[in-house]
Amino acid sequence: MSKVKKIVKNIRVDADKCNGCRGCEIACSAFHAEPKYSSVNPARSRIRVLTNRLKDIWLPVFAGEYTPTECAGRDIYTIDGKEYEECAFCRAACPSRDMFKEPDSGLPLRCDMCEGEDEPLCVKWCLTNVLVYEEREVWVEEETEEMKQEELHVGLESLADKYGRDKLMDAVARMNAKD
């Protein structure tokens, strides 16, 4: 399999600088609104600032992969005197919490690094420099049809988990009928 050079986009998070304003959530949700910037809703944001003000916890976390099942992780981490649940650092949209799911449909959200923009919008609108955008070059396997197929499979599986396979099939059938 051939390898190609790819730019990996990365956001460095300096949580110690976070003042807890949640401007990143606002910018993210506005950018991803349809049409773009037509609405704001932090509940739809693909970045969330986990907050416990008196415990001095302000932790920006990005939405990652969807998972249909809960993991077993229930450990408690103490870092610099502050207690975090293991879930705090997890990017997954999973059944154990509401985070990273569309509030209306419950469908999973995932950070797309604001594809097409110079930098992700959360980075752009964070004036306290908590979020710093980085790009680095890596060699990766060239994306194949199989990989695209795999991505489609993951998406369909999340819909099937949420609505059941029958309803999904019905929906596909209706779409076919419309076409």
């Binding site: 506005a30 910037y37 037509s38 609405s39 704001v40 809703n41 509940a43 004036l127």
Partner: peptide, 25 residues
Amino acid sequence: GSKDVHLARGAEFMELMEEVKKYIN
């Protein structure tokens, strides 16, 4: 709350906020 707040002319609003952001900095 987890509902939307709508903007009438969102893109224009964000352009104006760009200027506000520059001035804050």
